Amino acid sequence: MQVSPTRPTRPHRRRSLSSMASLAAATLLSIPFTAHATGYPDKPITLVVPFGAGGITDLIARATGKALSEQLGQSVVVENRPGAGGNIAADFVRRARPDGYTLMFATVGVLAVNPHTDVKVNFDSAKDFTYISLVGSTPFLVVVGADVPANTLPALIKLAQRKPDAISVGTAGVGSAPYQGMRIFQDVAKVEFLHVPFKSGAESVTNVVSGQVNMTFEATPQVMPFVTSGKLRALAVASPHRLSTAPQVPSTAELGFPSLVSGSVAGLIGPAGLDPAIVKKLNAAVAKVAADPKFKATLIAQGTEPAASSPEQFRKLISDENQRWSALLGAGNK
């Protein structure tokens, strides 16, 4: 019986075909993103907010979303994803497709403070996100409930020094701006508070008003109506200067605590790998929004100062704050 000779294999040819297939696949995958960058946006954008509705982050995010919608000619839909101090929202955005249709109104607390707390985070602020622009900075007021026996900031400090952990502080969760204020206050005044986390700043304010917790840090729109009615007492604004929205409240700097500065700094980010053309278009849109007198007036009414930036400036701010909070909340300091 005659046996046909075995045809020799040609591994180099197979490798070549494999390489061509990989190149073709990569090319095909790149086409949708190029198309999106060219005609972006051609459908609604989802703006994820890491805290519940009603807090200062949510209010500013909604104002920003509305203004961006007008600039971009597409709807910007705000989606609240509260929980775990903002980590749930950050993880969601981290895993989203980097096509510019899922963005996050992120705070410094979520990106730079949370990684140094005991709460587990599933993201790397330096690697998992594309930074687009800062939007605004909101100094916070230090407010206490009407039944707290302290009419001034120094009096509150003395009260806390006499009874460690007796003064409870409501926040929007570990890493949130009110939480940052509490930690800075503890570090500056050498006191210890009892931390009580909620899903949003609005919820924490409600609980201070009802007497469930003693104090919080929040923006003027959330607390001044209660201060005016006598249900809350504003002891200071955690800022180098007084606010036009609460001119009667002294600043922490004039009370002798210049390093007690706290507030919410927030901006736009997207998943890592966002097309530079999309980033450029969004950054330009934010710059136009921040310069608009109507938008400025809206933010100022919320006690917030517009603060547009380049992507690089936003990234550097997060990097610097990461180092700061690593030192403040590092091993042995939590």
Rank of each mutant, 00 (worst) to 15 (best):
residue 129 F to E: 06
residue 20 M to V: 04
residue 270 G to K: 06
residue 11 P to W: 12
residue 238 A to M: 09
residue 182 M to C: 07
residue 106 A to R: 00
residue 166 A to I: 03
residue 62 R to Y: 03
residue 96 A to P: 01
residue 55 G to T: 03
residue 282 L to E: 07
residue 92 F to T: 03
residue 108 V to E: 15
residue 210 S to G: 03
residue 217 F to Y: 14
residue 248 Q to S: 14
residue 274 L to S: 05
residue 259 S to N: 14
residue 137 S to W: 12
residue 184 I to W: 04
residue 219 A to Y: 08
residue 91 D to N: 04
residue 299 L to G: 01
residue 229 S to T: 12
residue 173 G to D: 12
residue 127 K to Y: 06
residue 186 Q to A: 05
residue 79 E to Y: 07
residue 82 P to V: 05
residue 15 R to P: 00
residue 323 Q to D: 14
residue 249 V to T: 12
residue 150 A to P: 12
residue 86 G to L: 11
residue 18 S to F: 14
residue 228 T to V: 12
residue 254 E to N: 02
residue 122 N to D: 15
residue 70 E to M: 06
residue 61 A to V: 06
residue 333 N to D: 02
residue 223 V to F: 14
residue 192 E to A: 07
residue 288 K to Y: 09
residue 50 P to C: 11
residue 126 A to D: 14
residue 90 A to C: 06
residue 280 K to Q: 15
residue 41 P to D: 10
residue 47 L to A: 04
residue 33 F to T: 08
residue 291 A to G: 15
residue 21 A to Q: 01
residue 240 P to K: 10
residue 52 G to W: 09
residue 101 Y to S: 00
residue 332 G to H: 08
residue 169 V to N: 13
residue 75 S to N: 11
residue 223 V to K: 07
residue 228 T to I: 09
residue 325 W to H: 07
residue 300 I to N: 12
residue 156 L to R: 02
residue 286 V to L: 13
residue 175 G to C: 08
residue 319 S to H: 09
residue 245 T to R: 00
residue 327 A to T: 11
residue 11 P to V: 10
residue 280 K to I: 02
residue 7 R to C: 02
residue 237 V to R: 03
residue 30 S to A: 13
residue 147 D to W: 09
residue 8 P to H: 13
residue 83 G to N: 09
residue 170 G to V: 10
residue 95 R to I: 01
residue 292 D to T: 01
residue 315 R to W: 05
residue 257 F to R: 00
residue 332 G to T: 01
residue 244 S to T: 14
residue 98 P to A: 08
residue 254 E to A: 11
residue 298 T to Q: 15
residue 285 A to Q: 01
residue 163 K to Y: 15
residue 198 F to G: 08
residue 266 A to W: 00
residue 289 V to W: 12
residue 142 V to H: 02
residue 282 L to N: 01
residue 120 K to N: 10
residue 296 K to L: 03
